[in-house]
Simulated scan of single mutants.
Amino acid sequence: MGRSGPVRTGAGRSPGAGPRPRRTPPRRVLKDDRGVSVLEFAGFLPILLVIGLAAIQLGLIGYAAGQAGSGARAAARVTAQGGDGAAAGRAAMDSGLDADVDTADDGELSRATATVTVPVLVPFVGSGWQVTRTVTMPTDE
């Protein structure tokens, strides 16, 4: 015996509509990942700041070394010509730096030593770092 009545193809769908699209399950709030990148950035930000401060501190060490070299050269040059080399060495360096210049002249050679205390940007790395540069020049006769 055969079936009687219309053939059902789906609730409210026409017979030639094709397969029914899959329904996606509703998203659960606990599995939502919005805002995770902000939390990752907030967790990584202190590390980025420490790396940035360390790079700036290395730059300050290089700056202090350059200033010590300039001061020692100026002091040795002026001492070799018979002048006040210590004052010339301090004048050749940045006035904001804590620097000390020592000179010596033994008649043939003039020697100047400049010592600069490195400014500390990062407080937990310690203090009291010093950069020393020594320059020797022949004394003018």
Rank of each mutant, 00 (worst) to 15 (best):
S110C: 14
V7D: 04
R13A: 12
A11R: 11
A92N: 03
P123S: 09
P26I: 01
T139K: 12
E108M: 05
G62R: 02
T139G: 10
A114G: 08
D140R: 12
D32R: 08
T134N: 06
L39R: 04
A80M: 07
A54K: 02
V122Q: 11
A54S: 13
A91M: 02
R23M: 04
L121W: 03
I61Q: 05
G69Y: 00
G66W: 00
R20F: 06
G35T: 13
D98Q: 14
T132D: 08
V118N: 10
V125E: 09
V101P: 00
G107T: 14
G107V: 14
K31T: 15
D102M: 10
P6C: 12
Q57V: 09
A91C: 07
D100Q: 10
T117R: 10
V118P: 11
R27S: 15
D102A: 14
G107F: 10
P123Q: 04
A75T: 00
A17D: 15
L58A: 14
A92G: 07
G16Y: 01
L45F: 13
R3L: 13
T79E: 13
T115E: 08
S4M: 10
T113H: 01
R133F: 00
A92Q: 05
R8V: 09
G85W: 03
D84P: 12
R13N: 06
A54R: 02
R20T: 08
A99G: 12
P26M: 07
V50P: 01
V29S: 14
P26W: 09
F44D: 05
D84W: 01
P46G: 11
R13M: 07
P138K: 11
G43S: 06
A64K: 04
